[in-house]
C-alpha cells in the first residue's frame, strides 16, 4: 500500500464508487464506537416523538463512508487533510434486513496546488442526495 502520487491524478477523475447497506445493527455498533447514543439512532419511539419518520443513521456514519471512499482510493488515510459535509437529508433505516442502501461516489474537482486535490462526494439514499457540499481534501505523494 502506498499513497497515490500527484502524477496519477487529474481533474475530472472519478473514484471507484461504494455501496453500503446500513442496518439497525450497524447503527448500534456505530453508537458504541463513537459514543453517540442519541436514541433517534436506535429507538423508533424516540425518533417519532421528535417528528422523524423512523430511526435515522448517524450523519457521522454517512460522513465516515464518504471518507472511506477517499482513503481507499488515496491508499493512505493520512492523506486526508480536510473533510467537510452538510447533512441535507436523514438516512432513514427501516427495522428490517434491508435497512438503507447508501451509495457514495466521488470525483476530483479541483487542484489546490501541485500535490493537493479536492474530491467532491455525492451520497445518495433512496434516490435522494443525503450530503451537500461534501468535499475531501487529499495531499498526494
Amino acid at each position: 500500500m502506498t499513497r497515490r502520487r500527484r502524477g496519477e491524478v487529474s481533474e475530472g477523475d472519478d473514484l471507484p464508487s461504494l455501496q453500503v447497506r446500513v442496518t439497525r445493527a450497524d447503527l448500534v455498533r456505530y453508537a458504541g464506537a463513537s459514543g453517540d447514543f442519541n436514541p433517534i439512532h436506535w429507538n423508533e419511539r424516540a425518533a417519532r416523538e421528535v417528528g422523524l419518520p423512523d430511526v435515522i443513521a448517524h450523519g457521522m456514519l454517512t460522513m465516515a463512508l464518504a471518507s472511506r471512499l477517499v482513503t481507499t482510493w488515496a491508499g493512505d488515510p493520512g492523506a486526508v487533510v480536510g473533510h467537510s459535509v452538510r447533512f441535507t437529508r436523514p438516512v432513514v433505516v427501516a427495522d428490517n434486513a434491508d435497512g438503507a442502501l447508501v451509495e457514495i461516489s466521488g470525483k476530483v474537482v479541483r487542484r489546490v496546488d501541485e500535490g493537493t486535490v479536492v474530491v467532491a462526494i455525492t451520497a445518495r439514499c433512496g434516490g435522494q442526495s443525503v450530503l451537500g457540499q461534501a468535499t475531501v481534501t487529499v495531499a498526494l505523494a
Binding site: 424516540a46 450523519g59 457521522m60 480536510g82 467537510s84 452538510r86 447533512f87 436523514p90
Partner: peptide
C-alpha cells in the same frame, strides 16, 4: 433528542 447534526468539517 431535538439536536440534529447540520454540518461537520475536519
Amino acid at each position: 433528542r431535538r439536536i440534529v447534526h447540520g454540518n461537520q468539517s475536519f
